[in-house]
Write a protein that binds this DNA or RNA. Structure first.
Lengths: 252, 252
DNA sequence: TGAAAACTCCCTACACCGTAGAGTATTGTT
DNA sequence: AACAATACTCTACGGTGTAGGGAGTTTTCA
């Protein structure tokens, strides 16, 4: 279900990511493709149809070769995914944001949100022991600079960045799932609720759960759905920055 | 990869969850098991070996029957997972916490964290349009009561609870992945880093990324690893509650 | 100018997955 | 005893990642 990055040979993954080339082969037929071709096709598949659709057979098929031929370019699927991740991480807009740390940090959160919404399959790739490709490192440095020189220790800087990026990932996950659920089930939120609510009313005891009854009803009416992920992101972002502000303020 | 809850027939799922029984059959052989037996076995498998190991064949095998026999109890795997989720959600400790909203909200966050760490496969089940079983509803009501009567609107209460639970889920996800990566790769963080760092040093340009170099080194030394998810959770929890406090304070 | 080496790519196979469809065994009712 | 209803099994399909071995193509060296 969840796919794991960094599972393959770290050496080979790093070589792929940083373009370190062992001396290239002299004899034998020329490869028809490059790793770059494969990565491009793979990202297209994952973006359009999700990580479930990204199989070795599918990638190979789109290139016009067989699954096993890919193993001449890439040691296994795990390393391929490592490369995909670092590739799209490079899409993060790493501009110098005018203003204070808060403006910069907000931009960091929004860029992380955007990245994950644009490439939802990223949310399914585990990030423990990530393979540190060039774009991943550039991103880490860029994000740290948002909170550099405002009185935080290195540890605090690292924790704050983790806090912000994790939040953005979680919020993006909710947004992506909400967007996909309609397509997956073939029913809009309205249609779903129309079928679901009469069934639920038979079993839900509004007297036993008065708070849930009131809040659930009001929230549903306000959102026009069970949840509104985009609004939740904006709401949480303010709380989050307020919370960091308390920390920063305590250093002054 | 990600598994989707609530994909099956909502009617049948709700019946399973709320124990609504169609009149039970008179003729034919007695069922050997109950849905409860199946759920218990399935949770044991998922807890011990993850959601990937939870196949219909595996559950059936553990019960001593064949995969297809399960379809007499449960319409499909999707509904089974719906039931699993509501079942473990019932483990949340819904006690009246002494103190103010902050103490209550902290308890909510910790219980969500604990639940997801204890049943890591929960993190792989999509939560859009969740099937609202009895335990899910009880949890929602319980959590809302933590922020009831402190001047927030219904919408704000809903958003705050979403903010807190989403945070706990994300933090738990990191903790679970960090714990699993060692088992999965057969290498401790130390071993991994010993093999990885010399390779990375060849490609990492400390002059190009001075902030990342300093912070990464200090953080690594402090944690004794690349990350410390438990510490990150505690750190973020304080920021998060501080941020909510700003909102609550503005209502006073 | 062969022959051999090196390389890319294909084919087959394995053990899994969820579940459709059809068949069999067991039980209760008439 | 006959029949109906149910529980369960068996087989099959199209999918997964990738191991192993063979086929075909290009370059190098004698």
């Amino acid at each position: 279900m969840t796919v794991y990055g960094g599972s393959g040979d770290p050496k080979r993954s790093l070589e792929l990511l940083w373009g370190v080339q062992e001396e290239k082969p002299k004899r034998g037929p020329k490869p028809r493709f490059t790793v770059d071709d494969i990565v491009r096709v793979a990202i297209a598949i994952a973006d359009a149809e999700g990580l479930d659709a990204l199989s070795m057979r599918r990638v190979a098929g789109d290139l016009g070769i067989t699954a096993m031929s890919l193993y001449g370019y890439v040691p296994s699927k795990a390393e391929l995914i490592d490369v995909l991740v670092d590739r799209v991480v490079g899409e993060i807009e790493m501009v110098e944001v005018a203003g204070d740390w808060r403006a910069k940090l907000e931009h960091v959160a929004r860029e992380n949100w955007r990245l994950n919404v644009r490439h939802p399959w990223l949310l399914q790739v585990s990030s423990s022991r990530p393979v540190l490709g060039p774009n991943m490192i550039a991103k880490y440095d860029y994000e740290l600079r948002a909170v550099n020189g405002i009185g935080l220790t290195s540890i605090e800087m690292d924790l704050v960045i983790g806090f912000v990026t994790d939040y953005a990932h979680g919020a993006a996950r909710n947004a992506v799932e909400a967007a996909q659920v309609e397509q997956r089930t073939g029913a809009t939120d309205d249609q779903w609720w129309e079928e679901y609510s009469p069934l639920l009313e038979k079993v839900f005891d509004a007297e036993k759960y008065p708070v849930a009854a009131v809040v659930g009803a009001e929230a549903g009416a306000e959102y026009g759905a069970a949840v509104d992920p985009s609004r939740a992101f904006e709401f949480g972002l303010v709380r989050l920055l307020d919370g960091v502000a308390v920390l920063v303020g305590s250093k002054g």
